[in-house]
Each structure stands twice: as structure tokens, then as C-alpha cells.
Design a protein around this nucleic acid. Structure first.
Length: 263
DNA sequence: AATCGTTCCTGATAGC
DNA sequence: TGCTATCAGGAACGAT
């Protein structure tokens, strides 16, 4: 489940591994999710890698950009050597570069890769930007009575936060995930803003969460799963008060929180 | 306009 | 053992 810290980590690795390389060959192994053809990329040079929310942007020479969303189980892996059979079990797209291979893997086939920027325009505020301030958050939260956790995960409002870090940030901010967004006080909004930044930075430091599918481009795991405060910690002791962490379903998503600490 | 339910997909796991 | 049913989950889409 790549969220902002995972996609940012992938971006950082790919900057080192593939920027400056030329695409010698391209193979589309699932046209339903990969909307890129050989013509779009072969012969192009990879100029830069960027990220917006959970979307990865691959900037190519000739003023053409690719965008990618990894959804549940997508991976971008880089192999400096020749590919082996095991590398390609879930491969959906393969870029042969002038040195090594970039492979888009995706077990569940929810992810996508396409030409263009359309999806980026729909995104809300970037957490690591000036716009991520109390005033704008107040505006966003005031307009809905939906549970705060669902608002945090709404990419058109705030870009990059998914289930893991919404749970973690709300715990740190001591806010109940079910609390209607428009009921948050200014103090709570301030705490939440700081908690989101703190959690995302921490997750970035540990290079993301590898609880299921996520791997970094060098095929090693992130380590934030060792640092979870509440996520997937049902019935474990709350690190703050010692009471049991609860699991509920909110908007169809698993939600973990301490009912004593988070009011 | 806001919000809710459904859909996509496959591996892992639970239950018999 | 081996089968089937259920579940997880981001976000687009259609329905209300």
C-alpha cells in the first residue's frame, strides 16, 4: 500500500538508479493497466523522477511524462543485471535501459502507468508544502461532517495519506478517527497537522512500510512496520496508556485506535 | 453537492 | 488433504 513515504522513497531510489538512462526497449505485459506503448518511450532519456501525492512522475526527453500509481501492490524494481524468471512473476511492464532494467510489478493489477498528467490536477494539498497550513485545513474540515479519518484519506483534499498513516497520525494527535471533521477544534487541527508531518517524516526516515507488498527499487524492505503505533496492533497495549488497541471498520477500511487516548 | 456502495484483482487464510 | 468462501484495500464510478 504505497502512500506518500513509500512513493517518495521509490522516487529517491529511482533518481539514483535510472535518471540519465536511455530506454532501449519497452514491453507492455498488461494493456489494461499499462497505457503506454513502445512508441511513447523507446529512445527517450529519463530526465527526472518526481512525486505528487501517491503518484510517481517519470519525466522523459521530448517533453513527455509518464505517471504511475501503485495502488495496492505495485512495485518499481530496478535490476542492474540481466533479468531472471523469478523477477518477472508479476511483471506488467519492462523498461530495458542502456544499463539494467526497470520493472513495474503488480500482483493485484490495480496500479496503472500512463502518459500524461491528468490525474495530478485532481490532487489536493501536499503535506510537505506551504499550503498545508492551519487555515487551509480548517477550510477543508469545516465543509464536511464525515469522519476525520476519511477526510485525511481523500486525495482530492489532501494528497498522499492512506490508511496506515491516517491511523498513525490520528493516534499521535489524540483524535478519534470517527470524529466528524467539522467538529475538530483549532487546537486539534494544529495537533493533527503537526502529527501528520511528524509521522510522514518518520516513515520516510525508515523508508516506508513493508507490511505486505511494498519493496524499494533495490528489492529490500522498508522498516516503518517495526514502528507502528496502532496500525495492525489490534488487542496490543497502547504505548501511551496501556489499554488495548481497538479495530473498527470505517468507510470500509480497517481502523486502529486507542479509545481511551483518542477522544 | 455530498456521500455511499460497488467494482476491479489475486494471494493468503479460515473453515469444513 | 484439498476444496471453497472470505477478506484486504485505493480510488473511479454510478446511484441516491
Amino acid at each position: 500500500m504505497p502512500e506518500l513515504p513509500e512513493v517518495e522513497t521509490i522516487k529517491n531510489y529511482l533518481k539514483r538508479f535510472v535518471v540519465g538512462r536511455r530506454i532501449l526497449n519497452f514491453e507492455n505485459l498488461n494493456k489494461k493497466q499499462i497505457k503506454v506503448s513502445e512508441n511513447d518511450v523507446v529512445g527517450k532519456k529519463i530526465l527526472d523522477i518526481e512525486r505528487m501525492g501517491k503518484i510517481l512522475i517519470i519525466k522523459l526527453s521530448g517533453n513527455k511524462n509518464l505517471t504511475a500509481h501503485l495502488k495496492m501492490s505495485g512495485q518499481f524494481l530496478y535490476f542492474p543485471r540481466n533479468l531472471e524468471k523469478g523477477d518477472l512473476k508479476y511483471a506488467r511492464a519492462i523498461f530495458k535501459l542502456n544499463k539494467g532494467y526497470l520493472v513495474f510489478n503488480d500482483v493485484r493489477k490495480f496500479g496503472w502507468l500512463r502518459v500524461g498528467n491528468e490525474e495530478i490536477q485532481k490532487l489536493g494539498i501536499e503535506p510537505f508544502s506551504k499550503k498545508f497550513n492551519i487555515k487551509n485545513l480548517e477550510k477543508i474540515f469545516k465543509q464536511t461532517k464525515r469522519p476525520i479519518k476519511l477526510v485525511l484519506m481523500d486525495q482530492r483534499k489532501i494528497a498522499g495519506i492512506g490508511n496506515i498513516y491516517a491511523n498513525e497520525a490520528l493516534f499521535l494527535a489524540k483524535i478519534n478517527p470517527q470524529k466528524p471533521a467539522n467538529k475538530l477544534t483549532k487546537i486539534e487541527i494544529k495537533r493533527l497537522k503537526n502529527s501528520i508531518i511528524k509521522i510522514l517524516k518518520r516513515a520516510l526516515k525508515y523508508e516506508g512500510t513493508s507490511s505486505r507488498f511494498y519493496l524499494k527499487p533495490d528489492q529490500t524492505k522498508g522498516r516503518y512496520q517495526e514502528k507502528f503505533l496502532v496500525y495492525q496492533k489490534t488487542s496490543k497495549d497502547c504505548s501511551r496508556c496501556g489499554k488495548k488497541i481497538k479495530k473498527i471498520i470505517l468507510g470500509g477500511r480497517s481502523t486502529f485506535y486507542c479509545s481511551f487516548c483518542q477522544k
